[in-house]
């Protein structure tokens, strides 16, 4: 078991190093000079002043050193929790800006992922029992999984925000309010949170329901189900076994889907102008703030890796077969 976790950790560590390296490379080899564009915004005409400011900024951002030194100092900074300084919101540190946005993203993402997985699985298992439910839920599920996140988000924003006026369609909270721990503010937060959450939840739901429905039908046809039926076991017991065994591929599915879901969440945030990492990515892109962009990507990568690692561990706990293989098994 520990050897397995150790091996997994090593793989994740390697993935992390590669991800960080690519992450560092992309903005640096992207066309465009961020310092130049910052200076052009200041519209300085004196060439001598321009030159001095250029070298000043290059020194501040560490762009005057050779590439390999930039790379090493990037890693060094990483371990100190220093991701550099934002260009867009100069001179605020990147880490502070990200930490301000992360709670919003997590608040949408975690409940959407976990609830849609649980509800979708229950729903799918339930649908597998009856022909009528199966024939109605399945097509709906297919439409839902095929729906792009931001398209559904737009639809919800239009229907429930603009037409019905039930929910606000933009921002994390009303601009008229100051952040405070009051009932009014919390309620406002929830109202702003609801639509981004709902569109994430609904799209993910369909996929899980379809997957579970198919898995349950497969498991109910499995040999052990037939055997138990021949021995007169009640349907309840057989369904319980089938549900549990059908869960296993769904857990794997969750790990595989995680990246897609997070990408969907970022797009959804942009649609609702929700102040999470998604909107931040868009802002930093338009402002060529590659320190910020880099920091956000790093957070997303680390988040996905951690989540995948957790799922790996959970899988080992729920499927005895992987556990047996790891301990070598006693034949």
């Amino acid at each position: 078991m520990w050897r397995y976790i150790g091996r997994k950790l090593a793989v994740y560590l390697l993935t992390f190093v590669v991800a960080v390296t690519i992450n560092w490379m992309i903005p640096r080899f992207m066309p465009g000079d961020p310092v130049r564009s910052m200076l052009s915004r200041a519209s300085i005409s004196d060439p001598e002043a321009l030159e001095r400011m250029n070298s000043y900024y290059n020194e501040v951002f560490g762009l005057d050193t050779p590439l390999w030194q930039q790379y090493l100092s990037f890693w060094a900074g990483l371990f100190r929790g220093d991701l550099g300084i934002s260009i867009m919101l100069y001179p605020e540190p990147v880490i502070d800006i990200i930490l301000r946005s992360v709670p919003y993203t997590l608040a949408v993402l975690l409940p959407a992922i976990i609830l849609s997985w649980i509800v979708g699985n229950r729903f799918g298992a339930f649908a597998a029992r009856s022909k009528i439910l199966d024939n109605t839920i399945l097509p709906v599920g297919y439409v839902l999984t095929a729906t792009p996140y931001m398209w559904l988000a737009l639809l919800f924003a239009w229907a429930m925000g603009v037409v019905l006026g039930w929910f606000p369609v933009s921002g994390g909270y009303s601009y008229s309010l100051r952040p405070a721990f009051s009932g009014e503010f919390v309620w406002d937060l929830v109202m702003h949170w609801f639509l981004p959450f709902l569109s994430m939840f609904v799209v993910a739901l369909g996929g899980w329901a379809i997957g579970m429905r198919n898995m349950i039908i497969y498991e109910l046809e499995a040999d052990y189900s037939n055997y138990l039926q021949a021995l007169g076991a009640p349907r309840k017991l057989i369904r319980r076994y089938a549900f549990r065994n059908a869960m296993l591929p769904q857990i794997t599915g969750l790990a595989v889907q995680l990246g897609t879901i997070i990408a969907g969440a970022l797009l959804t945030e942009i649609v609702f102008n929700y102040p999470g990492l998604g909107s931040l990515i868009l802002d930093s892109l338009t402002n060529r703030d590659f320190f910020l962009l880099q920091g956000i990507f790093l957070f997303v990568v680390v988040g996905v890796l951690i989540a995948n690692f957790i799922i790996d561990i959970v899988y080992v706990l729920v499927d005895p077969r992987t556990r047996v293989q790891m301990t070598g098994g006693a034949a």
């Binding site: 499995a222 040999d223 052990y224 037939n226 055997y227 065994n245 729920v318």
Partner: peptide, 12 residues
């Protein structure tokens, strides 16, 4: 059964 090899629930 014919399939006694797979007649047992693999996760119990």
């Amino acid at each position: 059964p014919q399939y006694a090899m797979s007649a047992l629930n693999p996760t119990r």
